[in-house]
Simulated assay, not measured.
Amino acid sequence: MKGIIFTEFMDLVEEKFGLEILDKVLQDAEDNGVYTSVGSYDHRDLVKLIVQLSQETGVSVEDLQKVFGQSVFQKLYARLPENASLLECKNCFQFIRLVEDYIHIEVRKLYAEANPPKFVFISESQSELVFDYHSARCMSHVCLGLVEGCAAHFNQSVSVEMVPQSEDQKHVRFQVALMETQ
Rank of each mutant, 00 (worst) to 15 (best):
residue 133 Y to K: 03
residue 77 Y to E: 14
residue 69 G to W: 06
residue 114 A to P: 01
residue 4 I to C: 04
residue 55 Q to N: 15
residue 91 N to C: 02
residue 117 P to V: 05
residue 28 D to Q: 13
residue 94 Q to E: 15
residue 54 S to M: 08
residue 2 K to L: 14
residue 124 E to S: 12
residue 122 I to E: 14
residue 112 A to Y: 14
residue 66 K to V: 07
residue 4 I to T: 06
residue 29 A to P: 02
residue 46 L to G: 10
residue 137 R to C: 15
residue 23 D to Y: 04
residue 55 Q to R: 15
residue 12 L to N: 03
residue 114 A to R: 06
residue 118 K to N: 12
residue 140 S to I: 03
residue 54 S to A: 08
residue 95 F to R: 05
residue 155 N to V: 03
residue 133 Y to D: 06
residue 156 Q to S: 06
residue 78 A to T: 00
residue 66 K to L: 09
residue 39 G to Y: 00
residue 29 A to V: 01
residue 22 L to Y: 05
residue 79 R to T: 05
residue 37 S to D: 12
residue 55 Q to P: 04
residue 102 Y to T: 12
residue 110 L to K: 12
residue 33 G to I: 07
residue 182 Q to T: 11
residue 85 S to T: 14
residue 94 Q to A: 04
residue 22 L to F: 02
residue 182 Q to G: 14
residue 137 R to A: 15
residue 108 R to L: 15
residue 117 P to K: 08
residue 153 H to W: 10
residue 142 V to F: 02
residue 62 E to L: 01
residue 122 I to S: 07
residue 45 D to K: 11
residue 146 L to E: 12
residue 2 K to Y: 07
residue 98 L to V: 00
residue 111 Y to D: 06
residue 119 F to W: 12
residue 42 D to W: 01
residue 53 L to F: 10
residue 16 K to E: 15
residue 2 K to V: 04
residue 131 F to K: 07
residue 70 Q to W: 12
residue 166 S to I: 07
residue 148 E to R: 09
residue 122 I to F: 10
residue 5 I to C: 06
residue 10 M to G: 02
residue 141 H to W: 10
residue 175 Q to T: 15
residue 47 V to T: 10
residue 62 E to C: 04
residue 177 A to V: 14
residue 172 V to N: 03
residue 78 A to R: 05
residue 65 Q to C: 14
residue 126 Q to E: 14
residue 143 C to R: 11
residue 107 V to L: 15
residue 137 R to S: 15
residue 6 F to C: 00
residue 8 E to A: 12
residue 16 K to G: 02
residue 90 K to N: 01
residue 71 S to R: 09
residue 41 Y to L: 06
residue 66 K to A: 11
residue 91 N to F: 02
residue 16 K to Q: 13
